[in-house]
Design a protein around this nucleic acid. Structure first.
Lengths: 158, 158
DNA sequence: ATTGAAAGACCTTGGCG
DNA sequence: CGCCAAGGTCTTTCAAT
């Protein structure tokens, strides 16, 4: 279950670009293609390397507006909250949902076409639900996702 | 710059699994491998298909705790805010940063080892900065990311 | 735009240091 | 663990439609 610095380097490369070929990764980490392939297979089998997802330019397909919804829920039974969580995650416009502690209960990132669309999503999927007591909405001016390891190579193997 | 339903199907498949082979995608959308290959190349060239990133199990590498930071900034010049944004996005533990309207200015998702680590990150990279006037922190109990198109096939081509 | 065919590159496995 | 070698498979290009 151990990860050495070679595994770490492989993970780092694949997080930046999942379309790298095995041969390219092997060259970058200084291994023969077959050895690199074995390591990647092992990382997958151990559940460390979970999956890979293409990133699509949402603006290019007409989803020009991003927003964050801060949702407060009533004090309800777990299964009601869970059910609402699942139904929220299933809304196509929802990009991510976090169930959190603190002032709000849900942080929901959404991608929509325009303001009209945003209003409709909030109304239909949040305000209309009995479990929701309040929704605050913020427009996203700028978003950046970090596709990298949460720690540097040197920190990981000091 | 148009996207037909075949392009749409390709994007949908690659968002779910960027490791699908061209041959597999071709079969799934009902095209010859060469035609499918051409389409994917075109989607990439047009900037619609941007990139692909592997998803790593952060818990497996010791990052068991996730949190959201709600950050308020002072009324400062743009370039100061921009600079802070860039430096924030460069912190390894930061998974995503959104600059937003409303009560808070920044929504920052972080991955950390434990509470001690969380405290250190907040202190070192946020509280210590003059531009930051307040940080509220929420622990993430549960997070789900949607790796799918923000609209259904039927909605896209009604 | 889509196709089939051809060439070359790559992945993948098995045996060995 | 890592490497080499071989076979089988896939990617990639191109002329034709």
């Amino acid at each position: 279950m151990d990860i050495d610095r070679t595994d770490f380097a492989i993970l780092r490369l694949l997080m930046k670009n999942a379309w790298l070929s095995n041969k390219e990764i092997a060259a970058a980490v200084g291994l023969a293609p077959s050895s690199c392939h074995e390591r990647i297979k092992s990382l997958r089998a151990r559940g460390i390397l979970k999956s890979a997802h293409a990133e699509v330019n949402l603006e290019a397909i007409g989803f020009a507006l991003a927003a964050v919804l801060f949702v407060q829920l009533g004090k309800l039974e777990d299964h009601v909250v869970d059910e609402f969580l699942r139904s929220t995650a299933a809304v196509p416009e929802v990009r991510g949902v976090s169930l959190v502690s603190g002032r709000f209960d849900l942080i929901v990132h959404v991608a929509v076409r325009d303001m009209e669309h945003l209003k409709e999503i909030i109304s239909k999927h949040f305000n209309r639900h009995a479990v929701v007591t309040r929704v605050e909405t913020s427009v996203v001016f700028n978003h950046e996702t970090q596709h990298a390891m949460p720690l540097s190579d040197s920190d990981a193997f000091a």
